[in-house]
Amino acid sequence: MRRSLFFGVLLLFLLFLSYYFSLTPKEGDVFTGYLVEGKAFDVQKALVLADTECIPNNDYTKLTCTAIIDADGEVLKVRYTHSMEVPCLSRGEEVSITVKDGSTVMIVRLGSPSMKH
């Protein structure tokens, strides 16, 4: 009796965990930057057209780049800084965009990076 109760509780716990993790949003790399050009608005799926002007800092630990993104027909240019360990955005990648305030935006890579450093 105790054994079947234990396995029943264990099964319920495992079902709960699988349900919880299926609802948890899966995010890729997160980049925060500021809008250089275009009008910022929240977009669930935007397309990276290019990532340009990547400049390393003095320690070669971070890169500052300008992402050019097609957000539902509006072309946005976002200047952002990221760690060298994280690959830059690249042409063809899908991202979501969230406006933090007037010109600060958060970009989330929706898939795996298409390039490596």
Rank of each mutant, 00 (worst) to 15 (best):
R2H: 04
R2T: 02
R3D: 14
S4V: 07
L5C: 00
L5I: 07
F6Q: 01
F6D: 00
F7Y: 14
V9N: 04
V9C: 10
L10S: 11
L10D: 03
L12A: 14
L14Y: 05
F16L: 14
L17W: 10
S18E: 14
S18Q: 14
Y19N: 05
Y20E: 14
F21Y: 11
F21V: 06
S22C: 08
S22V: 13
L23N: 06
L23W: 06
P25S: 12
E27M: 09
G28I: 09
G28K: 09
V30I: 15
F31H: 08
T32R: 14
G33I: 03
G33L: 06
G33T: 03
L35T: 08
E37G: 00
G38A: 04
K39L: 10
K39R: 13
A40Y: 01
A40C: 02
F41K: 13
F41A: 11
D42Q: 08
Q44M: 11
K45V: 15
K45S: 13
K45H: 05
K45G: 00
K45A: 06
A46S: 09
L47W: 04
L47Y: 06
V48Y: 04
A50F: 00
D51F: 09
T52Q: 12
C54F: 01
P56M: 12
N57W: 00
N57C: 01
N58D: 07
K62R: 11
K62H: 10
T64C: 01
T64S: 11
C65Q: 02
C65A: 03
T66N: 09
A67E: 02
A67N: 03
A67K: 02
I68Q: 04
I68A: 00
I69C: 05
D70C: 01
D70F: 02
D72P: 00
D72T: 12
G73S: 14
G73L: 15
E74R: 13
E74D: 13
E74H: 10
V75N: 11
V75E: 15
L76M: 08
K77Q: 15
K77T: 10
K77D: 05
V78K: 07
R79M: 13
R79A: 12
R79Q: 14
Y80Q: 03
T81R: 12
H82W: 07
S83M: 02
M84Y: 04
M84C: 00
M84T: 09
E85A: 13
V86K: 10
P87S: 11
C88M: 07
C88G: 00
L89Q: 06
L89P: 07
S90M: 01
S90K: 06
R91T: 12
R91L: 09
E93K: 03
S96L: 10
I97M: 11
T98D: 07
T98N: 09
T98H: 09
V99I: 08
D101C: 12
D101Q: 07
G102I: 05
G102S: 12
T104K: 15
V105Y: 03
V105R: 11
V105M: 12
V105P: 03
M106I: 14
M106H: 05
I107Q: 03
I107W: 06
V108S: 12
V108P: 01
V108D: 07
R109C: 06
L110T: 11
L110I: 10
G111P: 12
S114G: 15
M115N: 01
M115E: 13
H117N: 14
